[in-house]
Design a protein around this nucleic acid. Sequence first.
DNA 1: TTCTAACCGAGACGGTACGTCTCGTCTTCCA
DNA 2: TGGAAGACGAGACGTACCGTCTCGGTTAGAA
Lengths: 193, 193, 193, 193
Amino acid sequence: MSPEPRPHTGRRRNPAVRQAILDHAADLLIAHDYAAVSTDAIARAAGVSKHTIYRWWPSKGAVLLEAMAERARQQTPGLNTGVFAEDLETFLAATFRTADRVSGLLRGIMAEAQRDPVAAEGLRQFVTGRRDELHALLTRGLEQGELPPDTDPDLLVDQIFGLMWYRLLIGHAPVDGDVATRLARSLIHRQEG
Amino acid sequence: MSPEPRPHTGRRRNPAVRQAILDHAADLLIAHDYAAVSTDAIARAAGVSKHTIYRWWPSKGAVLLEAMAERARQQTPGLNTGVFAEDLETFLAATFRTADRVSGLLRGIMAEAQRDPVAAEGLRQFVTGRRDELHALLTRGLEQGELPPDTDPDLLVDQIFGLMWYRLLIGHAPVDGDVATRLARSLIHRQEG
Amino acid sequence: MSPEPRPHTGRRRNPAVRQAILDHAADLLIAHDYAAVSTDAIARAAGVSKHTIYRWWPSKGAVLLEAMAERARQQTPGLNTGVFAEDLETFLAATFRTADRVSGLLRGIMAEAQRDPVAAEGLRQFVTGRRDELHALLTRGLEQGELPPDTDPDLLVDQIFGLMWYRLLIGHAPVDGDVATRLARSLIHRQEG
Amino acid sequence: MSPEPRPHTGRRRNPAVRQAILDHAADLLIAHDYAAVSTDAIARAAGVSKHTIYRWWPSKGAVLLEAMAERARQQTPGLNTGVFAEDLETFLAATFRTADRVSGLLRGIMAEAQRDPVAAEGLRQFVTGRRDELHALLTRGLEQGELPPDTDPDLLVDQIFGLMWYRLLIGHAPVDGDVATRLARSLIHRQEG
DNA sequence: TTCTAACCGAGACGGTACGTCTCGTCTTCCA
DNA sequence: TGGAAGACGAGACGTACCGTCTCGGTTAGAA
């Protein structure tokens, strides 16, 4: 039995190492093809041992996921001007533009999530957070009468994020501010139809 | 110079072999995890040499893609009752139910398309075909005045298929006939809002 | 390279086809590395179907063997001047020079014989023929008192052909007329030692 | 940049792994046919990843070669009784008996050397070592007047090892102690002829 | 200051997929 | 029926990536 376990001994985790891994993982996915991003490549780019990666993350997907989450967190759009139409447009434009910039990252994570349960669960949580934000925004619009009264917010959230992911993954059409604007206006104009 | 080259000599391609490869590729992706589907596994299951696979398809992704396309072709919904609301609902219900049944296949191909350019191009073409169908249907609804006059069919198509893929890939919500119905009605009711 | 059009023989086996296969098999082994000589390559070079090869020979090794045997048959040295020392030197010189010229062929067959029982058996028979020739020659020398009376012809035959193959296969020393002369003289001088 | 590069970092090569690969490669070649010895088979038998084999050896032939060299090294005959006739007989008997025991190994390597340049070079070096030993022994015999004064040691070395390889590869006659004895005596008796 | 647990880079290792190659058989059509 | 073209099954080859483990060196807190 451990007579009195000390709270912590030994060298502490180096935050710079954690950051280097996340940064280089994201950069690699953004710059190169997803296929070119291996754990070895991340380790090499970050000047880090592969073991160090696996000491702190359970799988490659988990690293990519956290890298993405961190990038996304840096650009949460400021909201709440009070005007729903403006807020919606701002939210979508910011979201789409950011997503487009890191599209390689997002696509890589989505691919990884199809084979790695850890990444899948992480992605689900990340996505849930984003969906909740948009859901709250839409609910406010509904309460303010800016959306048709029979609108199903859940369905609408999936339509919006669905369009975004669909375009990112297939690549048949752009994901940019223009699309965001057109999409936002199409949702609001409807009520006046 | 060969004065008149014969159109073809030698043993002909065995259609049964092609079919066996596609069938077992699809079955494996539907039954097992995406990670478990290797070219060796497909070859073994189909009782076929790996070389035969690579003789006819440039990569694993290309095989999976064609397998999916064939499965999808088997279930094109009969349409054109003339009533737009009915047609839309039928189309979406059939599409969603089929997609759900072969969700493993679809998810595997989407993952593969992120790393294999051949699969990516194939998926883009497949998706284009499906999008054209829905686009035509929506355009008809627009002309019949069953959709708001300022509707952008392109955007709407991406919202619908986007929702479907998004749910398939993330798995946070079902893709079934019920969703299809609710989605179809939400699009049409709007005009009366 | 372009296969010269051969006359068609109808139902009978076409000797031109047989010859084309043997010729190109030998040429390939002489010109290229052994590793580069596949049945497909032989068929392509000879303008012949792979099936035709396997219709007449049981394995690749059998083809190479027959090709070699034919090449060797073309250069059987004229002997029997009656003077043993001269005959031996002539025999060795002719044998060594021929072997050196087709060394690629010989090396390829020896390699093939280690894995293909048919080639092994064929090579054994071919080698037996050559050994019998030399054995007869040496026996004559023994009877004429030109070799030490306790000479074991079997052992000596293996020493001579052994030296030749050993040098061909390892490549550490030449197999030419000079070596043949030195070897022949060393065998005869001995008796005077 | 790096002020003093450490001589080695990282996990060290596991000698047991190296030995397991060499041992099982040799055993496989001795027990089974040469055709049955694949890198996969060696890896499986040695409980080793195929990648580990290719990390340390450039080709299959290189592994087999080193396996053979090691086996041979284990049985270098003790020499130098001082009596040349005895030493020669001992050397030949030990060499022939060992070669016969691992004949499958030797034949497989000789075949591999015909297609794999790495194996060819390795075999040449190995053979050079053995030839030097015998060459030294024969030179001693020559100096002691136990061999005819006009003997060419190089030629004689190739006759002896040539006979051995020739018999191993063709299989028309045994390679055993008896042959070794007869051969040794035939070389020495000559001087008295 | 000494001790010691934990961090870290380098890299060996087992497992397993990928895509290519060759062998020998089988099929189709032509002459 | 002989032959050319070439599809096919079996299976080896060598490469790549994933996640684990081992080695020696380093660092920070406890004794």
